[in-house]
Design a binder for these strands. Structure first.
Lengths: 344, 344
DNA sequence: TTGAAAGCGCTAACAG
DNA sequence: CTGTTAGCGCTTTCAA
């Protein structure tokens, strides 16, 4: 009866029911598996559904049952780095496995926008919410999220009721340092950032631990806090390399800083990896693969974090708050061309 | 009656109606403005709604009316570059202005995934769909999208019924070349990519036009197709710079290639911008701001494209196919440190 | 200017 | 194992 010209009317559950000669209830259950159905009947229904190209309207579904087949992703910034894309990608893949879709909202790190975003996502009755940060941070989950199932990605919180996933920052420092000591380096510089964030103190702790393991006393003058970009890395490297008894290797806070270290080394007439070895963090391939020599670096698992967070959301349905998991993800070291044994 | 322990029942339109002493119909209209309401009554309703923190359930709304307050964004890759984030960000901002939310789906450039994505987005009854590419391409809009309101972002198609937005590639080549000739350069190299895509032939056409404008005959040997990454740029620059009568400036297909040009120049003992000027395309700040000297480059307006596409979707409601707009966005040249007058 | 009633497409509760 | 009935929270007729 609803034969609009041009637009084919969407096939609904009733069409399938009619085609299969059963009630809509049976169709619903045959498709969802919510209750036992005669094998033959099921086949008939599934068949009709497939033939007609039927798939249920998630809105109607959600209106009646609790679920909307929709997951919210609320982050502070998605525009700046390639990380965001990977995290979104992981989250989306996990959501798809559960027949769900991602609703993405970026607060641009503005409180007001965040609250608006929460409101919007709540209005849409998302089944769960990933509260994500682009740079590993400690956060407090906004009150407005009360009653919503939340998992933190690349962020942690003191409130133990929330599941969260973050990179193992200490492990990053440890791996990088171990890698360098295993090549025989004993004077290893570390460019870090001045902010007191998990990435900074975690990596530093790992760095210290790695030196300790190798029986090396930490030389505090080898730890240089600067900005976490190329300019910062360049400045730090100048400080470290332009002096007697310079380090034979530098562990950089991130790949951008490593790029700056390359620049400084060049300016000082030092070659990488022959005169100085370099390890970065992030594996921003735009940089790590472009540098000459290519950069040995530790990859941050943004895809995995996004994926895990959403999967956790689904597992978490009906779980007690005490079941929350705080996960630290190990980060792989990608061996490339910027590390060699010390030459001296 | 629905006093669950812990969970506050959501306030619905009925609660507002009761509080304001009117029918749900009146509340609906007072909030949507769909029909005239007595001024006092309206105030009373709006007041009650605000006090109770009411906002309508978009699913229920969508079930009854046509709209879902949801826009789909289907792209080929969101994981690799920072572009994606900017495009998403722009799209999201535009959606928010229309009280809508973005549902993002990434096909990972796999046909099967794309079809699944379309299916999902259709199931969710998105009000419109942005069909996006991360690199400017010519595409054919999949048949499965029939009946859905579609706008293309960073992609164009021969089918004139679709609105689309792409960067003005010819303008990019023209601007870059003009900028260089305005500094007095007359031998200008161009590193491009071998693929026959709009970005390649568009920028080349602009480059030729720019030279022509300045009364310079094109030297075909100055046009070098390679891969559009640092390695490619490096190889191309070696070819261009390591010979007599070398160009005094190079226009690079993108910032990554420009990074390679920097490397080659260094290896050949040439300084930028003194011996060679360089212009890139993309303004990937990870690179353009990190290079020494900073890179003069042309920014690709991904944020704007995302934003425009979604805005267009909303304008388009009820428009005839003949109203479709194919837009080319001019791209701003960002002047930084890599261009100077030729030294010779 | 307002309200009552119907119904969007589905699933849950309640029969049988 | 299956069907009938009710109703999720809204907006849209239709009627006053």
């Amino acid at each position: 009866m609803d034969n609009n010209v041009g637009a084919t009317a969407r096939v609904g559950i009733r069409d399938v029911a009619a085609a299969a000669g059963v009630s809509t209830t049976t169709v619903s259950h045959a498709l969802s598996g919510a209750r036992a159905i005669n094998a033959e009947t099921r086949v008939r229904v599934l068949d009709a559904a497939k033939r007609l190209g039927y798939s249920p309207d998630p809105r109607a579904r959600g209106l009646r049952s609790a679920r909307t087949y929709t997951i919210g992703l609320l982050s502070d910034t998605i525009a700046v780095t390639p990380y965001a894309g990977q995290m979104i990608s992981g989250a989306q893949d996990a959501a798809a496995e559960h027949q769900s879709v991602l609703m993405i909202l970026d607060s641009h790190a503005i409180l007001e926008q965040e609250q608006l975003g929460i409101r919007t996502l709540r209005d849409h009755r998302v089944d769960g919410l990933v509260y994500a940060r682009m740079y590993h941070q400690e956060v407090t989950v906004p009150q407005e999220l009360d009653g919503v199932s939340v998992v933190l990605a690349n962020a942690s919180t003191s409130d133990s009721q929330f599941s969260s996933i973050v990179p193992d920052e200490e492990g990053i420092g440890l791996e990088a340092t171990r890698h360098l000591t295993s090549f025989g380096h004993r004077r290893i510089g570390f460019t870090t950032i001045p902010e007191s964030v998990p990435a900074a103190w975690g990596r530093e702790r790992g760095y210290r631990k790695g030196l300790e393991e190798a029986g090396i006393t930490v030389d505090e003058s080898l730890i240089v806090p600067t900005s976490g970009d190329a300019a910062g890395g360049r400045a730090a490297a100048r400080l470290l390399l332009d002096r007697p008894n310079r380090p034979t290797a530098i562990f950089c806070f991130n790949d951008e800083a490593a790029m700056g270290v390359y620049q400084a080394a060049r300016e000082l007439g030092l070659s990488i990896p022959h005169d100085v070895s370099v390890v970065g963090v992030d594996d921003l391939q735009l940089i790590s693969l472009a540098l000459v020599p290519t950069l040995t670096t530790i990859a941050l698992p943004h895809y995995e974090m996004g994926r895990w967070a959403v999967s956790r959301l689904f597992e978490q349905v009906g779980a007690k708050p005490t079941d929350a998991i705080q996960k630290k993800l190990p980060c792989p070291l990608i061996q490339r061309g910027s590390v060699a044994p010390p030459s001296s």
